[in-house]
Amino acid sequence: MLVKFGYVAMSEKLQNASPSQTMTATQFSKLQDTEAAIRRLEKIAKSNLSNCLRLLKHNAAYDIDFFRLSSRLVPLVNHPLTEGWKYEKALMPQLKEIGQFVNEREMRIDFHPDHFVVLNNKSKEIFQRSLQTLLYHYKLLKGMGIDPKHRCVLHIGGAKEGKLDGLETFVDNFSDIPKSISQMIMLENDDTIYTIEDALYLGEKLEIPVIVDLHHHDINPSESHLSDLWERVLATWERSPLTVKIHVSSPRDGDMDKSHHDFINPERLLLFFEMIASRTKRLDVMIEAKKKDEALLQLMEHLKEDKRCIMESQASITFQ
């Protein structure tokens, strides 16, 4: 099984490279000239995109070709103060440069929009706001020249009226999502409400790839054993142009702590690899650890010591 590793948004090793610099609505409002305020937003966004490219080049030096981009690349998107702003046109040169770098090196990039993106809410207003956020991510990917299919990870959402109602509301709302947007979506299990089996219910019904989050599963397990669910997870990726992927983090303080540790517990991950290796050809692993790329590189040092792991690069192994 070929396994590639990636990490999230920011680097601990590369200094002064934040892709999430921002400007608040209050700061924007204090500027008398709206056009000047928009130009300032664009300057910040261009700096974020420049840092994003620096991060990708840094990753390439470590053979890391899997990366989650920050969703905060462009400040105040979809805010009433910036209504009508064609940010994607203003940022096109920077977006194209990132896309060219990613495509030339066959990197895998994606997004994980924040928890305000809720597709199973019965409020039309919340649903429409969620679609606008997904449209923003779609525009960024299109500007980069990257196929948007299966590039946005989402949680299923809330369950104010119970899990079953939450699942069925997701199904009902899904039919109202434009196809170009709905094809972006991947679903993961969460650590409180929806298990892997719940995500599989939607994934199988709506043809959405399902991502296993190991940490979430350990805290909020399905009734069925993960080994018995893995074939179903794989099947949800059969229509995807991308490799099946999982999320990995470790609890910070005790087995049931939902907070992420600075680093990754290699033993837990190796147990999972052992369980699925005979049934899986390729796997991409997104590391969700506080120490970002440092956590990835430390994990690789641990894996080097395991006889079942053959090092293919600084950020990939064959597990046998």
Rank of each mutant, 00 (worst) to 15 (best):
190 D>I: 07
117 V>K: 00
74 V>T: 07
195 T>P: 05
256 M>H: 10
43 K>W: 10
193 I>R: 08
185 I>E: 00
240 S>C: 06
49 L>R: 02
56 L>V: 07
276 I>L: 06
108 R>F: 10
247 H>I: 00
50 S>H: 11
116 F>Q: 10
134 L>Q: 00
132 Q>W: 03
221 P>N: 09
97 E>S: 14
204 E>Q: 12
188 E>Y: 05
24 T>E: 10
21 Q>R: 13
248 V>H: 06
123 S>N: 05
72 R>I: 06
302 H>K: 15
233 V>D: 09
47 S>V: 13
241 P>L: 05
3 V>D: 07
126 I>Q: 11
135 L>I: 02
248 V>L: 12
263 F>A: 09
62 Y>L: 11
30 K>N: 14
251 P>L: 10
58 H>W: 13
289 A>R: 12
243 T>L: 07
23 M>P: 04
136 Y>C: 04
66 F>E: 01
230 W>V: 11
68 R>K: 07
62 Y>K: 13
220 N>F: 06
88 E>N: 09
54 R>W: 01
142 K>D: 09
11 S>Q: 07
62 Y>M: 10
6 G>E: 04
69 L>W: 00
305 E>V: 09
78 N>T: 07
229 L>T: 08
68 R>Y: 01
89 K>E: 15
76 L>K: 03
183 Q>T: 05
270 L>V: 15
80 P>Q: 06
265 N>S: 11
209 P>Q: 01
320 Q>H: 12
154 L>A: 00
268 R>D: 14
180 S>H: 10
211 I>F: 04
121 N>G: 12
243 T>C: 06
202 L>H: 03
194 Y>I: 06
97 E>F: 04
168 E>T: 13
21 Q>G: 05
290 K>E: 10
275 M>Q: 12
271 L>P: 01
99 G>Q: 05
191 D>S: 12
103 N>R: 10
267 E>Y: 13
188 E>F: 05
227 S>V: 13
213 D>C: 03
137 H>Q: 01
245 K>F: 04
173 N>L: 08
129 R>Y: 08
285 V>W: 04
13 K>I: 15
314 Q>H: 14
254 G>K: 07
270 L>W: 07
254 G>N: 07
127 F>L: 05
88 E>D: 13
49 L>S: 01
201 Y>Q: 14
159 A>W: 06
303 L>A: 13
253 D>S: 15
12 E>R: 15
137 H>M: 03
185 I>G: 00
62 Y>G: 02
172 D>H: 11
134 L>R: 00
167 L>D: 04
8 V>A: 13
272 F>A: 05
164 L>F: 10
185 I>C: 01
15 Q>L: 12
235 A>V: 02
86 K>I: 09
228 D>H: 10
179 K>F: 03
148 P>Y: 02
113 P>M: 03
168 E>P: 01
67 F>L: 05
320 Q>S: 13
262 D>I: 08
278 S>Q: 15
204 E>H: 01
230 W>H: 11
291 K>T: 09
306 D>W: 11
130 S>A: 05
244 V>Q: 05
267 E>C: 10
8 V>N: 11
211 I>W: 01
175 S>I: 09
235 A>K: 13
149 K>P: 00
31 L>R: 13
277 A>C: 08
207 E>D: 15
294 E>K: 14
45 A>N: 08
54 R>P: 01
187 L>D: 01
90 A>H: 14
171 V>H: 02
18 S>P: 03
123 S>R: 05
